[in-house]
């Protein structure tokens, strides 16, 4: 603070020297570097964000052909997208996937964050272990889980010792999506857990002290202190999860390529297939636009909540 006080005696002299140039020129000079610093980002954002976004809007009305040029086709792409029976399947699968991620996955990091915060010892080690799968590259995990889920793999071996029959986790149509969600929960809950854990640990300890003196039991303390304190964070994470899972396609693609019998064909995977298997970029962009119309509001909601949270 002392330093700034000393330094602040100078600006007068500095200003005098600068204001010898005409006023307008001076303002330009003052803002020059501010603008220059923004120019590269501006160009990059336009070229690689806004142009693709706008091209998405435009090309959804075109038949995209890299060789003989694009042709305007009106609403044909949308018509094709909306009449394709696979789209209905894909929407249903995506909703199923989102529901499973909620039921099997959403509460897991919250529960473990609260539990781990209560560990008196080895808390650090448990955190590292929980986060470890998140560090291993996704492709490696796909290879690993294919083997784990194998009809004669370790999971079936474990089930076998309890007398449960073999389950074809990936190829059975009833199990395929559940198996994927289970794998993803296993892989990803660690990072969510760390976020919740930071929130749990930031709750003042004396609130619990006071509640205990007032006779609140352990569950009452969790229900009336811990969870309400994390309310905003939980809602935010839920929205993030909905945004994320509604666009999910990578594990479905890598492990099963949408099969067996299209049971893991999600909406985003169908879009990817339209673009990069059928090379029908127009219809794929139309599917993307439809997705934007449905999901666009969620991003705004997330932003608003995030602002409140900070």
């Amino acid at each position: 603070m002392n330093q700034t006080a000393v330094v602040n005696e100078n600006p007068g002299a500095q200003m005098e020297r600068k204001s010898s140039t005409p006023q307008r020129n001076g303002r330009w000079k003052k803002n020059f570097w501010g603008y220059m610093f923004l120019v590269p980002a501006f160009v990059i954002f336009i070229l690689f964000m806004w142009v693709p976004i706008l091209k998405g809007l435009v090309y959804s009305f075109y038949h995209v052909d890299f060789v003989s040029g694009n042709t305007f086709v009106g609403f044909d792409n949308y018509a094709r997208a909306l009449t394709d029976p696979d789209v209905l399947t894909a929407v249903k699968n995506t909703l199923y996937y989102m529901a499973l991620c909620f039921v099997l996955g959403f509460w897991v990091p919250i529960a473990f964050a609260i539990a781990i915060s209560e560990l008196r010892r080895f808390g650090g080690f448990v955190r590292v272990a929980a986060y470890l799968p998140f560090v291993v590259p996704g492709v490696v995990l796909y290879g690993l889980w294919r083997w784990l889920y194998d009809p004669v793999g370790p999971i079936n071996a474990l089930l076998g010792t309890f007398g449960i029959d073999q389950i074809a986790f990936l190829t059975d149509t009833r199990w395929s999506m559940i198996s994927l969600v289970f794998m993803e929960t296993w892989q990803q809950f660690g990072s969510g857990m760390l976020i919740y854990l930071a929130a749990v640990l930031s709750i003042p300890r004396d609130w619990y002290e006071a509640a205990e003196i007032d006779g609140a039991g352990v569950w009452a303390r969790i229900r009336h202190i811990t969870l309400p304190s994390m309310r905003n964070l939980i809602i935010l994470m839920l929205i993030l999860q909905v945004i994320g899972t509604s666009q999910g396609y990578q594990s479905q693609m890598a492990l099963l390529d949408g099969g067996p019998n299209n049971t893991t064909l999600t909406y985003a995977l169908l879009m990817v297939k339209y673009a990069f298997t059928k090379l029908d970029y127009g219809t794929a962009t139309a599917l993307g636009m439809l997705m934007f119309i449905v999901l666009g509001g969620l991003g705004v909601l997330q932003f608003k909540l995030n602002k409140e949270d900070n």
Binding site: P52, I53, M271, G288
Partner: peptide, 22 residues
Amino acid sequence: FFLMTLFIPASSYMVPNFVNLK
């Protein structure tokens, strides 16, 4: 201007993004 791109789900412009790069 920078922030607005956050509201647009990434997958929805993935295909045009590829076309753009091409």
